[in-house]
Design a protein around this nucleic acid. Structure first.
Length: 287
DNA sequence: CATTAGCCCTGAGAGC
DNA sequence: TGCTCTCAGGGCTAAT
């Protein structure tokens, strides 16, 4: 979102075009027309959704899903494309051929072209009145923002109390806390020394006191590193985030965790499936 | 109500 | 080289 804001905030969208009917859901009627000619007023984020305020009291709600990315190119911006499609890096403006899996294109007056690229099409775009952003059906009921001061051990502890589901599943539940995904849940639980299998209701006392700062630290550090770039994700400016280099457990099955450097009898990071998702943890450090 | 399985998609990598 | 199989930053919906 910060990358997009740097490119789009205060600028006017000269022309917008949808290149297919929709992604996860059909694009809202008149999306391209609403974007065309509108000035971009500002951005905010709620959970994993970006909200782009444009003229006319409208906001554009954007979710990148699993494989989505916003790509800015032309007018001096570095292309985010990679591989064989990299040849379009010096293409400018709206006449450039669409990148593979580019579904929505916005061209600014200076020729910058911003594309929503999403191979798996799990992402979504919708329009919502700016005055009622949080009333959108996809945002209603979402839990507290983990980086805000209001997210305290007391608040998380209350949300987890009585829950019989594994803490891993509870933290992925956006109604309990907003914006955590599979990677950051794994990393936060590692730092807090909590097993992903532990029942959520039993995460209390000292464990919640460790978990809340662990969540805040993981997210803050990753944002500072530009995010985590696995497979196809790149930021709007084409640079990749580098937080994946700091993963302690995610994707590191069998390798020693940072705190247990190859001790005899230690099998290293374990991988199990919880809530339908791969979970990585150190059985020695996480209880 | 709380929790889980299925499903929406394409692409990359592993194994044969 | 090419095929098949499995898995991947998410989250809605139906079933249990």
């Amino acid at each position: 979102m910060r990358g997009l804001a740097a490119v789009m905030q205060g600028r006017r969208i000269q022309y917008a075009e949808t290149l297919r009917e929709g992604l996860r859901w059909p694009f809202p009627a008149g999306l391209a027309a609403r974007l065309t000619g509108a000035q971009v007023l500002g951005f905010r984020r709620r959970a994993k959704f970006m909200l782009m305020r444009i003229e006319g009291g409208t906001s554009v709600l954007i979710h990148l899903g699993m494989s989505g990315r916003m790509v800015a190119r032309g007018a001096g911006h570095i292309a985010a494309s990679q591989g064989p499609q990299g040849a379009v890096s010096d293409a400018r403006g709206h006449n450039a051929p669409p990148e593979r899996h580019e579904h929505l294109v916005m061209t600014l007056e200076d020729g910058t072209r911003i594309g929503f690229v999403d191979p798996r099409r799990f992402g979504c775009v919708d329009l919502v009145p700016t005055a009622a952003e949080d009333a959108h059906r996809l945002l209603a009921g979402i839990g507290p923002e983990p980086l805000e001061d209001a997210f305290t051990p007391a608040v998380l502890g209350a949300a987890l109390a009585g829950r019989q589901t594994p803490i891993k599943a509870a933290l992925l539940d956006q109604k309990i806390v907003a914006g955590l995904g599979n990677i950051y849940v794994a990393e936060a639980l590692y730092r807090a020394g909590i097993s992903p299998q532990r029942l959520a209701g039993s995460v209390a006392g000292a464990r919640v006191l460790r978990l809340v700062p662990a969540i805040k630290a993981v997210l803050t550090e990753s944002i500072e590193a530009g995010g985590s770039s696995l497979r196809d994700y790149v930021r709007a400016d084409g640079e990749i985030g580098i937080f994946q280099e700091n993963f302690a457990v995610y994707g590191r099955a069998g390798k020693p965790c940072p705190e247990c450097p190859g001790l005899p009898g230690c099998g290293g990071v374990a991988q199990i499936v919880l809530a339908g998702r791969s979970s990585f943890y150190c059985p020695k450090r996480q209880r």
